[in-house]
Simulated assay, not measured.
Amino acid sequence: MMLPPNAFKRGLAEGRSLIGYWCSLPGGIGAELLAGCGYDWLLFDTEHALTDVPDILPMLQAVAPYPVSPVVRPASNDPVLIKRLLDLGAQTLMIPYVQTAEEARAAVAAMRYAPRGIRGMAGMVRASRFGSVPDYARRAEEELCLIVQVETAEALARIDEIAAVDGVDALFIGPADLAASMGHSGDASHPEVRAAIEAAIKRIVAAGKPAGILTLSPEFAEACLGWGTTFTAVGMDLATLSTGARALARRFKG
């Protein structure tokens, strides 16, 4: 059996614009519904959601038949969490709150088997198709993709050194935490935050790495695409559900 290809990683390498959607709700049904909606990638979040590591397996299985790439965000830059998600078959991980090149290198090490890293060995895991992928341990790295989140003013100041870390495939800007670190909690649209995001996207691109972001504002998403984002998340399940349900209630209840 062949090592499954990572379409998301290939899309980044080709410089294609990849439009994504954020999944905060656990479970395979919602994931499968969204998998058929036309997005290039879906983010399964275990940092700010009820979704936990065991919940990721049915979500990965639900989207597998569809032409969409799952990206999984562990709760933290923790080698144990990273190892478990990789063993479940996640090929692209987004690591939150990476502040320094040292922290980026730690994430890279957690993604790689020895001698290049510290990922624990296990034979009967879904990632290797339960041992049926020849030389999985030697070749797994070829199809793994690591995204690190830069989401504070301090992290943005270190973009160049973080982007230069071998094994970091892309950098993702977290607008909400960035706004808070700049003294504008809850106001990611503040002009100072917007200017910092624009500058960060351009610096990431200049460093030779793909830049990503999440925004629920279509206008701001278009601006970010114009500044150079390669992978751009433009919606979230809870936000879409809330907006649609409230609009329907207003229509019929006045």
Rank of each mutant, 00 (worst) to 15 (best):
Met182Pro: 04
Val53Ser: 06
Val63Ser: 10
Leu88His: 02
Val234Ile: 15
Ala140Pro: 03
Leu18Pro: 04
Gly120Val: 02
Ala75Asp: 13
Ile159Lys: 00
Ala110Thr: 07
Trp22Arg: 00
Arg138Tyr: 11
Ile56Leu: 06
Val53Gln: 09
Ala206Asp: 12
Phe172Pro: 01
Ile29Phe: 14
Val63Ala: 06
Ala206Gly: 07
Leu60Lys: 06
Thr46Cys: 14
Glu198Trp: 02
Leu88Lys: 01
Gly15Ala: 09
Arg119Gln: 02
Val125Ala: 09
Leu225Met: 07
Met1Glu: 14
Ala239Leu: 11
Gly212Asn: 09
Arg251Glu: 13
Gly254Trp: 05
Pro96Ala: 01
Glu161Gly: 03
Tyr39Val: 00
Ile159Ser: 01
Tyr21Lys: 02
Ala195Met: 08
Arg158Met: 07
Thr232Met: 07
Gly28Arg: 14
Val71Arg: 03
Ala49Leu: 06
Ser189Met: 09
Ala109Gln: 14
His184Leu: 08
Val53Glu: 12
Cys145Phe: 08
Ala211Trp: 12
Ser76Gln: 10
Met124His: 14
Ala31Arg: 09
Ala64Lys: 13
Thr240Glu: 12
Pro74Lys: 04
Ala101Lys: 05
Asp78Cys: 06
Gly228Tyr: 00
Asp52Gly: 03
Pro191Phe: 00
Val205Lys: 15
Arg129Cys: 13
Pro65Asp: 13
Ile29Arg: 15
Ala106Gln: 15
Asp40Gln: 04
Arg246Gln: 15
Glu154Leu: 11
Ala157Glu: 15
Pro26Met: 12
Thr92Pro: 13
Thr243Gln: 14
Ile173Ala: 03
Leu238Phe: 12
Pro115Gly: 08
Leu146Ser: 05
Ser181Arg: 04
Leu43Val: 12
Ala114Met: 10
Asp237Arg: 09
Trp22Ser: 01
Gly244Ile: 05
Asp169Tyr: 09
Ser217Met: 04
Val150Leu: 06
Arg112Phe: 09
Leu85Asn: 03
Thr51Ile: 08
Leu57Asp: 15
Ile19Cys: 11
Thr51Gly: 04
Ala107Glu: 12
Arg116Met: 04
Leu18Arg: 08
Gly167Leu: 03
Leu86Thr: 02
Leu81Phe: 14
Glu219Trp: 02
Ala64Glu: 14
Leu12Cys: 08
Glu151Asn: 01
Ile56Asn: 09
Ala155Glu: 00
Leu34Trp: 11
Gly123Asn: 11
Val165Leu: 10
Leu3His: 08
Arg10Val: 12
Val193Leu: 02
Ala207Arg: 07
Thr46Asn: 10
Gly186Asp: 01
Arg112Met: 10
Pro65Val: 13
Gly174Gln: 05
Trp41Ser: 05
Pro65Asn: 09
Gly89Asn: 10
Ala223Glu: 12
Lys209Asp: 08
